[in-house]
Every structure is written in structure tokens, then in C-alpha cells.
Design a protein around this nucleic acid. Structure first.
Lengths: 334, 334
DNA sequence: AATATTTACGTTAGTACTTACATAAATTCT
DNA sequence: AGAATTTATGTAAGTACTAACGTAAATATT
């Protein structure tokens, strides 16, 4: 029992490879005493030519599920050894048709006998496991056709990252984080305004006490993101002060904070949410849009408190609004 | 459904390879965004170093079940990229000990996360087939450890050849074959003597009518071997005129003829069999010996009819004598 | 102590593929 | 009809291995 075996599914690929190499070597050995102009690697091409002949290089490659350079190389080897003949297609001068020569054809009887032995040996071997090995391979391939291994891995990566982030409600311990996280992103793109300083320094009096909320995202024991719901005079919420630390970008923390905010707003029976942002923040706007927010015109009666704000968006919570309700599995994929 | 799939067990190796390559490619892709000095092919070595460090090149190769040049190459790549440190073993100056560097170790956390995703994806994938894929692989490998694929194929080849040869009793149609087959081998090694000509030209009066038998081996509609049992005055049989055509050598036809002869002798309740041969025919003598014959001294009272004969052998049929009775399966293997 | 054998490792060459690119012919578009 | 695109093939270079050989050091044998 070596490490490759101990690793189980993680080293499945290595194991399949090892097994196939072991077989290939053993199969190669059985041709050695046959004294024919034949190489084991020719098998797929030779076998195909026995059934369909003549055939063009690329058609053969397609039928065999290998690359055309492979067929091209094997074919020229076979031509060199006199096993295959090249003919040119008359209608299409690009095409090189290959076919078994007299010599190539005459080898088939002896080869077919060996193949029958290989087939019988393989059948016996696989049957001895008590499993229908071919069916297992069929299912494995089918499953992979339905969904690539890469995307399966990605799903798990996404899920792990998603689960690694916890959304927390406001706690006085996080007061400083609320300030530093927002200061970081504001100063990166804009300059800190007077209203920013007031709100970021006094979240409790400015947001919580008037009936708002602040959420925090924790990743690896650290607060890396935050966003606030400010209670407006008409009872709606304004989403604001959403920020994620530079180093924690790409973990879909913004989406998770936003989903938590929408969920809370629905819980509280709020009719709609608004937000103000800047057209410079295109990734943020894309996210808001994905979550259902739509742009609304700037109302001259309600000018923004912030100089950087030039976009106003709204999410109508009375209508169907999936992202406040959907499961994590769907959210992760959006 | 391509040809590789249609071929079933015959192309099992190709299929395993294809599957492993598909996995390898997908797995390679998930490291690309990780921005680490890491190559997917390092995996086995890296993983081992995470558990056992430092370790020598050859020890690592052994543990991983790969060749030491592979470990050596991977290790030097890793050294070049600063992931691995080389130390010299003090006690054994041949040994190069490799260990993860600070940098190599620091990568492990991120890598381990990805591995966990790969592992989870693979588990999910294999489980979706409804089979215990790992168990199938275990069984396949175990079965191959117990008996190599090559020897499994050989068994089938042997059996096919064995079954392809039919032993027939004397029939006047075969009279000419009896003569030509024996003439071929006698003239190859010796010269045809007067007694040869007499017996070969008149098998019926010389062998059959005095109570003897002649067997023929048929392979692909052709008589390719023969041997005779000559009834002696004391009731025993003398095995004689055993020959196989040059072109049919290697098919174990001699063994099959001999087995048929011994079986017949036992059936007929004969106490023992003898034969005369030449010390020049070492392969034949080896076969006789395998089948239970032992050399006996030349009895001066019974000089041979043939000048070439200088070895006399005997098989005591009253004692245990496996090869007259054993099944084909055992005979094929002898 | 001298010699033979084994072990550890590196190097080179080979294998069975692939990807990427180049070229020529055919087909489609305008 | 001329230009752009697609298709068929070949070639070069790369990948991830292995096998085979050579060298140096250690160990066993005589």
C-alpha cells in the first residue's frame, strides 16, 4: 500500500494512469514473439482500418477520439513499414486517404488471435473483481461528460469559500473595523468626506440607534467586510458603507453581505431598499444589479450627502426578489 | 460512443489512460489562479515531503511507487523554484536528502485547501456512479499483483493453441501424412534407413494390424503431427515415429500427441511404454522426461533397429503417472 | 586489505501522447 | 470574382513519464 493508494480519491488520476501503463506494457510484450511489422501503439488506427478503409486522417482521429497528429504520425510509420497505403482523395486534394496494404491485411489474422486472447484475459481479470468494471468506466465517463471535473472542483472551492465567511450582526467590538474597512476603500477611490467621518466614527448613534443595522463578514477570525442598512424616514432601508478589505477580495464577501442585508430587510417587512454609489465603482454596480437592484434617477429634492454619489439604485422588495431568499448553493453560483 | 468504448475490455488500457489524462488536465487548471511556485506534477513528491521530510531521492521514489529519475527531476525543478532544499546526508555521502523550504512549507495551506476540493469533487464524482470505484481499483490491482496481465494473456494464447489442435486416430486418408511428416524430421537430422521406409510406407501392416495405434494432430484442417504406438511382443507399447511439421512447431503438438498416447496405453492396460531416440534430439528427450519417461540402459539383447538410436526410455504405467490423466489446463502449463 | 557487489543518484534517450502553429485546399460570404 | 473563413494535414516543440546506462559511495566477501 503506497501513498498513491492511501490518498484515495485525491490520487485517482495517478492510479488510473499507473494501471493503464501497467496494462500497456504487458500487452506490448505479447506482440514481441509475433515477428510482424506491427507496433502496439498502432492498435487503434490498425483496428479502425480493418473496419473502415480507406479513411482520411482527420476522420480517423475523430472516430478514435485521439488527435489528428497522432493518427498522422502512426499512419506515416505504418506507410514506412509497408502496412498502409496512402491514396489521395480525388475530389478533395487536401485529404490523404489511408488504407491497409496487402501486407497489412495479411497480418490481421494473427493479430486478431492475439487480440482475442487479450480480450479474454481482460474479461477474466475484470470479472474476477466481482464488479462490472466496464459499467463503472461508462458511468464515470458519463458523469464527467455531464459535468467536467474542473467545474466540480470549482463548485467545492466556491462552497468552501462561501462557508468560510460568517456574517455577524453589529457588536461594539467591531466598531473600529467598520471604520478602517470603509476608510480603506473610500480613500482608494475618493476622499473621505465630513459625512463619512461622522458616520464611521459613531455607528451606534448614526445607524443602530435610529433603527438600522450593520453586518460584518468574518473570514479566518478576522473582520474583512462590512455593510450598513440605514433606516430612512419613510421606513425603507438605505444600503450604505459596504466595503471589503483589499486582501479579502474575490471571496464573494460583498455578495454574502448583500444577501444578508436583503434578507434582513424582507424580515423587517420593509417595502424597498435604496443605495447610492458612484459610476466609477462598476464591479459594485454589477453586483447590485445581479442582486436585483435597478438604477433610478437622482431626485433633485433629495440630493446626496456625498459628493462621489452619482448613481442611485432601488430594490423593490414587494415584488419577486430571488436573492434575498435563495439557498446558498444558488447564490454561490451567481 | 467511439471505437475505444465499443471495443470494451480490449481497449481497457486506452480508456483508463484517457480518463486519467482528462482528470490530470482538469486538476492542472485549478492551480493556475493560485499564483504559487507549484506544478501539478509535483503533487506526489510535495505531498510526501509534507509528511516525511527530509527524505532521500530513492526512498521517496519507493514510497511513491514511481521511478527515482522522476523524483530526481521533480526535486531539481523544485529546488530551482526555491520550494525544496537539498541537504547532504552526513553518514552516507551518496544520499541527497530533500526537504521543503520555508517557502515550500508556506504554500501548503493554500494547496491543501485545493486538494480538499479536488478530493471532495472526486468523492462526489465516483459516488455518483453508484459503485465503490476505489474498491474496484483495489481489486483490479490486487488481481494484477496476484497474476500479471501478461501471464493471463499467455494462458489464453496457450489454451487457444491447445484447443486448436485435434488428435485423431488412424485413418487410411492420413497414410501419406504419416510418411511425409516423419520423412521431414528424419532427413533433417539423420538419414532415412531401410526400416524407416518399410514402416512409413506400410503403417497398416506394420503398426495397426499387429495391435498398435497411430495418432494424428490436426491444426487448421491440416495434419501437422503424428506418432505411433507399436505393440511389442511382451504386450507393452513402443512409442515411435513421433514427428511434427517444422511449420507447426511451438504449438505443443508433441505434448498433445504424447498425452494421447499415454492415455491410450493406460486404457489398454499396458504395463509400461518404451521408446528409442537419439541423444541429438534434446528437446524431444526433455519432453519425454517431463511426461514421466526415464532413461534406461541399452539392453545388448535387444539392439535397435535404427542406427540413430542411442537412448532408450521407459514409462512405468503401473505407478503414478500424471500426464496420462491430467486435465488439459495442467498439461498446457507444463 | 583487496575485491566484488549493492545502493544512490544523475543523465540520456526514448515513448506515447499532447498543444500550437503553419500551409494548402476547399467553401462561404460579399 | 475576390476575400475571408473553414477544413485537412503536417511539423515542431512540449509533457510526463520510463528504461537503460554510468558513476560514486557504501557494504559484503574473501
Amino acid at each position: 500500500m503506497d501513498i498513491i493508494q492511501q490518498l484515495g480519491e485525491l490520487a485517482l488520476g495517478s492510479r488510473l494512469r499507473r494501471l493503464s501503463e501497467r496494462l500497456a506494457q504487458d500487452v506490448a510484450a505479447i506482440y514481441s514473439d509475433l515477428d510482424l511489422d506491427y507496433e502496439p501503439r498502432w492498435f487503434p488506427v490498425y483496428y479502425l482500418l480493418l473496419q473502415k478503409s480507406p479513411i482520411s486522417i482527420c476522420d480517423a482521429a475523430q472516430e478514435l477520439g485521439i488527435t489528428h497528429p497522432m493518427v498522422s504520425q502512426i499512419a506515416s510509420e505504418m506507410v514506412k513499414r509497408g502496412v498502409v497505403l496512402e491514396l489521395r482523395d480525388e475530389n478533395d486534394k487536401r485529404k490523404k486517404m489511408i488504407a491497409l496494404s496487402e501486407k497489412g491485411l495479411s497480418m490481421s489474422e494473427k493479430l486478431a488471435e492475439r487480440w482475442a486472447d487479450v480480450d479474454a484475459a481482460a474479461k477474466e481479470w475484470t470479472a474476477s473483481t466481482g464488479f462490472d468494471v466496464l459499467a463503472v468506466l461508462d458511468r464515470l465517463e458519463q458523469a464527467l461528460d455531464a459535468k467536467s471535473f474542473q467545474s466540480r472542483i470549482q463548485d467545492h472551492t466556491r462552497k468552501r469559500r462561501w462557508d468560510a465567511v460568517t456574517i455577524l450582526d453589529y457588536d461594539p467590538h467591531f466598531k473600529e473595523d467598520f471604520k478602517t474597512i470603509n476608510t480603506e476603500w473610500i480613500e482608494q477611490h475618493f476622499t473621505l468626506e465630513e459625512a463619512d467621518r461622522r458616520i464611521l466614527s459613531n455607528p451606534e448613534t448614526e445607524i443602530i440607534e435610529p433603527g438600522g443595522h450593520i453586518f460584518f463578514a468574518r473570514y479566518k477570525q478576522e473582520i474583512v467586510g462590512t455593510c450598513a442598512l440605514i433606516r430612512c424616514s419613510d421606513g425603507s432601508y438605505e444600503l450604505a458603507k459596504m466595503g471589503v478589505l483589499e486582501k479579502a477580495r474575490g471571496l464573494q464577501i460583498g455578495k454574502k453581505l448583500l444577501a444578508a442585508s436583503i434578507r434582513k430587510a424582507k424580515e423587517d417587512g420593509v417595502p424597498y431598499m435604496t443605495l447610492e454609489t458612484s459610476s466609477k465603482l462598476s464591479t459594485a454596480i454589477a453586483l447590485y444589479r445581479k442582486m436585483g437592484f435597478v438604477a433610478i434617477p437622482f431626485d433633485p429634492d433629495h440630493p446626496s450627502e456625498f459628493a462621489r454619489a452619482d448613481v442611485r439604485m432601488k430594490l423593490d422588495l414587494s415584488r419577486y426578489c430571488p436573492y434575498g431568499e435563495q439557498t446558498d448553493a444558488i447564490l454561490q453560483r451567481v
